[in-house]
């Protein structure tokens, strides 16, 4: 395997390890909540209001946003991280999918 293919595996593996840890490892927020934050779907206000701001640009959060009813600071910490990593993961996967399609169509002899 060329060196850079191995390097790519290391980058993807490190990213997958991060995603797996924040979604399935121990946490103060439930795994279900963390998955919903990561996917940016299925959450209800006020948590959805807070996390919706993470995926907008520029990100703007104030004290009132953090005073989310029913969430401890540790839960907010985890859910904000899940929302940010989830958003980035969707970008990463969208880019890789576009690359895979571009490469496949440039090499018609390859199985698709």
């Amino acid at each position: 395997m060329p060196e850079n293919d191995t390097a790519d595996d290391a980058k993807r593996a490190a990213h997958r390890a991060l995603v797996e840890r924040i979604l399935t490892g121990d946490g103060r927020a439930s795994a279900e909540q963390r998955k919903r934050a990561f996917d940016d779907e299925g959450l209800v206000p006020p948590v959805s209001t807070l996390l919706g701001r993470i995926t907008r640009t520029p990100v703007r959060i104030d004290e009132a946003d953090l005073a989310v009813a029913g969430c401890s600071e540790d839960e907010v910490f985890e859910l904000v991280i899940c929302a940010a990593v989830g958003h980035s993961t969707r970008l990463y996967e969208a880019g890789l999918a576009a690359l895979a399609e571009a490469i496949t169509e440039e090499a018609p002899g390859h199985a698709s």
Binding site: N4, D5, A7, D8, K11, R12, H15, S88, T89, L91, Y92, G95, L96, L99
Partner: peptide, 11 residues
């Protein structure tokens, strides 16, 4: 491979 590497930086 460079596209992949740039996408990792972006993520």
């Amino acid at each position: 491979q460079q596209v992949k590497d740039a996408l990792a930086v972006c993520a």
